[in-house]
Amino acid sequence: MVVNLKILNNPVSITLEFINKIAIPYKACGITQDPETKNYMVVLNDICEKCNEVCNSIHFQRNFKNWTSGNNDIDKFIQDTQLSEHTFRVRNALEWIPYDRLDTYIAEDDEIDRVYRTNWTDGCICYWNNKNQNWERTDQNRFVTLKILNNPANTTLEFINKIAIPYKACGITQDPETKNYMVVFNDMCKKCNEVCNSIHFQRNFKNWTSDNNDIDKFIQDTQLSEHTYQVKNALEWIFYNKLYDIYVDEINKMYRANWIDGCINKWDNENQNWKRADQNMFITLKILNNPADITAELNKV
């Protein structure tokens, strides 16, 4: 365990000094002596004065010496959020996130606002594990968004007004090449205030296209409307090679086939992918005569 040592200035009057100044505000474990200085010292539990126990603020405080952002204002801001954590689960504490814990590929998302998206290897701090003497974390390899801090010296005001209020921030990092400080925050839905299905769909927009802007937008709009646990109305772009045994139903003037993947059902947090139902299901294909007016076409179907 981590303990504090308090020098006894007057060992002759140990009872009075101990009771009045040390034993009351702290939980003492014992007394020791430095063999070189001959000073007697009380061995005290390193506990929080507010909680009277070893809470999260103490675990954070013990680690202050192991990290720095290289900027005193940012260090103090992060430390202040950590020192405010007195509950079992960490709620609002930020942390200094080394840049190499973020995915090396960072794609610019919005040139105007200079917002970037990436993956964070470690995930958010959740609570302290006494057995392992380390933090338990959740959502490893999660998607996060990076927002450049334009004025690190005024971190508190900028952070509260522009970043902390609309988003749930995780920490702060620094690009070693540009030297820009960036806030790392959850890539959350503004409507749900969490990572809902619309966010999972949105993250995948760059990985597919129909090569038709009207169709792309129509599919994306249905996906962005998904805010419940199970996917209900979202469409997706289905690659043709995922269909097999395609044939023409001459009677109904339609194509029929089997679809390998099946319908999207819900998001699997553990595997970071969609769970699907009805793999190899039978489906019907209807030709779109006017993709530019896809809404009207689908209403006919």
Rank of each mutant, 00 (worst) to 15 (best):
L285V: 03
P176W: 08
E226G: 02
I7E: 12
N258E: 06
G70V: 08
V195M: 10
V43L: 11
M281D: 09
G262K: 01
Y167C: 07
A107I: 13
N20W: 07
K131C: 10
D249Y: 09
D261S: 15
A107P: 03
N132Q: 13
I246Q: 06
L285K: 00
L285Y: 02
N258K: 12
T173K: 01
Y105M: 14
F218M: 05
L235M: 13
Y244P: 00
Q220P: 03
P98E: 02
A107Y: 09
L288C: 09
W237T: 11
E158W: 05
I246A: 04
N180F: 09
C29M: 12
C192N: 08
I219Q: 01
E236H: 08
L94Q: 04
D261V: 07
S69Q: 06
E158Q: 15
Q61H: 08
K76R: 11
E270H: 10
Q133P: 03
E108F: 10
L94A: 03
A23R: 10
W237L: 15
W274N: 01
Y240T: 13
V231T: 04
N271C: 05
W208V: 08
N207R: 07
D75Q: 08
N130K: 13
V231Q: 00
W274Y: 07
W259K: 04
T228E: 14
A257N: 02
V43G: 06
D175Y: 04
A153G: 08
P25H: 02
A169V: 04
V115D: 07
Y40L: 08
D46L: 05
A164H: 04
S69K: 03
I287Y: 15
P25S: 02
C51N: 07
Q220L: 03
I264A: 03
T145S: 15
N56P: 02
I31R: 01
E226H: 04
N290F: 05
K27V: 11
I163A: 05
A164Y: 03
D100N: 13
C124D: 15
C48T: 06
N4E: 10
P11T: 07
D109V: 15
I78L: 02
W67D: 03
V12M: 10
C55K: 03
A107F: 10
I22H: 01
D211E: 11
I19S: 08
W259H: 07
D293I: 05
V248P: 03
T284A: 09
S57Q: 02
K27D: 11
V3I: 12
T284D: 08
R203F: 03
K162C: 11
L83M: 14
I97M: 03
